[in-house]
Design a protein around this nucleic acid. Structure first.
Lengths: 206, 206
DNA sequence: GATTGTGAATAAGTTCACAGCC
DNA sequence: GGCTGTGAACTTATTCACAATC
């Protein structure tokens, strides 16, 4: 059963909400409460849970612990997935901090940078290697996911080399449209386009 | 005529490509070339241009300068839109650098932070003010757009205060789901969810 | 009585495919 | 011949609405 990217994204959101609720000592939750917490309609929540075959009861709603488990079973690979970040600038460092100590199943295992001052240092818990060692480190640490936070000019070359080194999925923060072999999953986050969109819909809304 | 967020996003992409092509000295472009450069089908490109009523000719395709103009007329507000960034951490600084000296119609006019060491400094061309001055500076500089790069714990409070101060659109980098009055446009960029999505589709694809 | 689970309806987004044009 | 512009077909995503359930 294929699950759409949109549903996957929302499930990630629900999981975060469930973690918060569980921490608050709650045990059960209704679809309209998740709806409220995530700005998604209640029908959408139920539809999403239906696609992962998680069921609740009209009486008490959904078990929070159970839902958490089901979402995690789906999203988290059974074997730990290892991630590398390439480009330890401000953005790269912000991301290293953000992902520091997150779920063990999805761990940033290495960082890479051209700057000799950064190479060898441990930044936000992650060791930084020179770019030349991408192939070696990806292979030794079996890294399959790369986060790209390099300048636009280097983006394509770096992307090609991490894929060569074994990356099968990329989170691309550069504004470059990457050309990569089929089968490599790329998610791009484009600050410029996002800000333009926000600006456009500001005009509209008000 | 309402234009969907998706189309707006793609138009931003096309514009960037057109700028590059114009800089390369090209004058005309075919839909399949834009398609290639942006990973969007040619039919989609033509459909998007149709919605903004921009037409080309079978002979030479679309005028690059003309298309650039049409997209800009749509995306750029006739009056300059002013943006503030709240939270000058690593991510905030990365964004200030990214947006530095971008199109004059969409300018980051002020930054805010709690850290006294940052207040008063000019970072990436943008002056930093203390949080207490949000209301005053938003009003004086007529800022209508805010970028939120503060820690999760402060996100809701800061969001509320920038909206109070006059912001009508937010680019939210915190993982907090913001509760704001209707009519305020919020675009959220959620690193955690994005990485989880990438990880999930890596499993699938490979 | 309020909620779940879901078929059916609707809406949004994309692609097809081809007439018309240069 | 290869392109644009576009109605129509199709696909994907969301919402409705209600029978079944506790």
């Amino acid at each position: 059963m294929a699950i759409s990217p949109k549903t996957i994204g929302r499930l990630g959101l629900y999981r975060r909400t469930m973690q918060k609720m569980l921490a608050d000592g709650r045990e059960y939750v209704y679809s309209h409460e998740i709806s409220n917490a995530c700005s998604v309609t209640a029908a959408q929540v139920r539809r999403d849970l239906m696609t992962i075959r998680f069921t609740g009861s009209p009486e008490r709603g959904y078990s929070i612990a159970g839902l958490l488990q089901s979402i995690s079973d789906l999203l988290d690979d059974p074997e730990e997935q290892r991630v590398a970040l390439v480009g330890v600038g401000n953005l790269g460092q912000a991301l290293l901090n953000y992902f520091r100590g997150r779920r063990a199943t999805l761990q940033v295992a290495a960082a890479f940078d051209v700057d000799p001052a950064k190479v060898g240092r441990v930044i936000a818990g992650t060791r930084t290697y020179p770019m030349q060692q991408i192939a070696a480190v990806f292979s030794k640490q079996s890294i399959g996911i790369a986060i790209l936070t390099v300048p636009a000019a280097e983006a394509q070359a770096v992307a090609t080399s991490v894929v060569q080194a074994g990356a099968r999925a990329l989170l691309n923060f550069t504004q470059v449209h990457l050309r990569l072999p089929r089968g490599v999953f790329v998610e791009s986050i484009d600050f410029g386009v996002s800000l333009e969109k926000v600006a456009y819909f500001r005009q509209q809304g008000g």
